[in-house]
Design a protein around this nucleic acid. Structure first.
Lengths: 333, 333
DNA sequence: CTGAAAGCGCTTACAG
DNA sequence: CTGAAAGCGCTTACAG
């Protein structure tokens, strides 16, 4: 097309070179902080950049280098402390290696559709970290097979995956509860979408089997949506009948309203009522909730480190599964 | 460099062209669904794409077209229903015009640093929507002056801005409360970071002035962090002394624990205790909370529409301020 | 409908 | 230390 001009002419590296009376290569070197540039030349170029208001075109740079120094993080949600901790840990590592992260949360069905429609959203960054989404189902056919991907909280045949042993986490909570001479309840969330992760079920399963091994059993499992309002209702229902019981919630998030209701109903939490959560979110630390600690930050860091190694080609073996151990943290509930 | 080869040779449009025995232009036309391609040729190209496992290089495409069909949304947080509603509305409009969104939440100081360090995160998408962050402070010197930007919940000298009249929202809540013969309290959040928005203060100010105009006044303002735990404490403190009062919270989020505590303490919410929130979040609808409705989705849609117009060049006037009116929604609290 | 070719704006090996 | 030039992988006006 040659003669076509953009309606608004941008200032390019060529303009800077002309103004500074140097070659484009030199401008590029200044831009990339190459040490092989004379101090005076560098000053002239910097001056030209300022005067002309030049900003480099990232697309051109990326086409040339083949890299964007960006990675995309896909999550099923965008709410909650869990993601904040995870993302902070990921960013910390990424930053160290000169990368930044962009978030693509699949908070509704449409986001997923958008992803399928224009998969190059994902091809435009150097790699992906995918949390708690069924990658093998979502990503096949969308991205190139060689795209570097690391999954968190999700098993995968094709990529590295970082998981916590949720079953074992349930087991240690069960072992702990088995000694309590009380009715035992579980409040958990039921998977509603095919792409949702199965972590809650695994925790419940471990808890249940541990209990059975010790001759105990769950008196009732309550399924709730992941919000506090519904959990308030369930808590009221439980405490209306049982003034003495032990409750295992498959995430700390659900433990909060339960403790709140118990307290306002005058029940002694930590004595009459025992509560054990899962995750060790900041809120569990603040409210002194007994919980099964999941090393969230460690998972994030490990995912980021692994991804960076894959991108740089330092890691060439076939996908590996990293399974981290959760641990019981006994606090005041 | 000419002779340099990437370590792993990617399959390009040229390979596809050779395999299908057509020119690269034709492959490109097939890729872009041009109608001017013979059915049989198209089939051959599609076949070649499949056989070779070809995926287009988005960087090359963007360099060529000058557009990425992507926009970045910057938010101060990544938690809460507010953002979900806002993002869904933004995405809905963006999708219509063939755009997708990527999130860049400034959830900690480091994210802001990362942004400053490599500003081309922002230059690599076609435009920005910035929510509740002081754009003029954050973005100057980071992006090109001509980059299309729309701000939400934040005033700006340089860009279009979409705001709700928070002061007026406070006023209508004040007008409503002025008639109640009870002590009046406010629970709100204090801005702690220079980049945080001032919406809570504006709401409080409108509320206060409206009350004073009617010869009433606020008995006490409680400042809390934006979490439920602290608000539980405050609520207990209030209801311990006052069994009858009216409480205005500058966001629905803070109204929830207050209502919960009142109820579990046996107070009649809607009679002895009056509560009015702000925002009209989903939770306010579920719990039937009286509130000042903020048209969140409308703000998102308007922001997206405006941004798309700016990008396409259809909007050429100087930056405009859109101020939407909130409205009082009286429900059962 | 199709191909050859210029151009998008950078980077970088090469030859001074 | 520096410049000229090839190349990154696309798109698209032009001339069949």
């Amino acid at each position: 097309m040659a003669k076509t001009k953009r309606s608004f002419q941008r200032v390019t590296i060529k303009d800077v070179a002309e103004y500074a009376k140097v070659g484009v290569g030199t401008v590029s070197r200044v831009l990339n902080n190459s040490p092989h540039v004379d101090q005076h030349t560098r000053q002239r170029v910097l001056e030209a950049i300022k005067v002309l208001g030049y900003f480099p075109n990232p697309h051109a740079r990326r086409l040339s280098t083949g890299s964007s120094q960006l990675i995309t993080v896909i999550t099923p949600e965008m709410k909650g402390d869990f993601y904040q901790i995870l993302m902070s840990a990921i960013d910390e590592v990424l930053f160290k290696y000169g990368y930044s992260s962009l978030l693509y949360p699949l908070y509704n069905e449409k986001k997923y559709e958008a992803l399928k429609r224009s998969s190059d959203i994902l091809l435009s960054t150097d790699g992906l970290i995918v949390d708690a989404v069924n990658v093998d189902k979502v990503l096949s056919n969308i991205i190139k097979p060689q795209t570097p991907v690391v999954c968190i909280e999700q098993d995968s045949d094709d990529y590295d995956s970082i998981m916590v042993d949720n079953y074992y986490g349930g087991v240690i909570a069960g072992d702990y509860f088995a000694d309590f001479d009380m009715d035992i309840f579980v409040v958990t969330h039921r998977k509603t979408h095919e792409l949702e992760s199965t972590v809650f079920d695994e925790r419940l399963e471990g808890f249940q089997e541990s209990l059975e091994k010790k001759g105990r059993s769950i008196d009732k499992v309550y399924y709730v949506p992941l919000d506090w309002e519904s959990t308030f209702e369930v808590a009221r229902r439980i405490f209306y009948r049982f003034k003495r019981c032990a409750i295992f919630t498959t995430t700390d998030y659900l433990a909060v309203p339960i403790i709140e209701v118990a307290r306002t109903m005058g029940l002694k939490v930590g004595e009459d009522v025992r509560v054990c959560g899962f995750d060790d979110l900041p809120i569990a630390q603040i409210l002194e909730i007994t919980t099964v600690r999941q090393p969230i930050a460690e998972m994030g860091r490990l995912a980021a480190e692994t991804l960076v190694k894959r991108i740089s080609g330092k890691l060439k073996e076939k996908p590996k599964k990293y399974i981290l151990k959760p641990e019981l943290v006994i606090r005041s509930t």
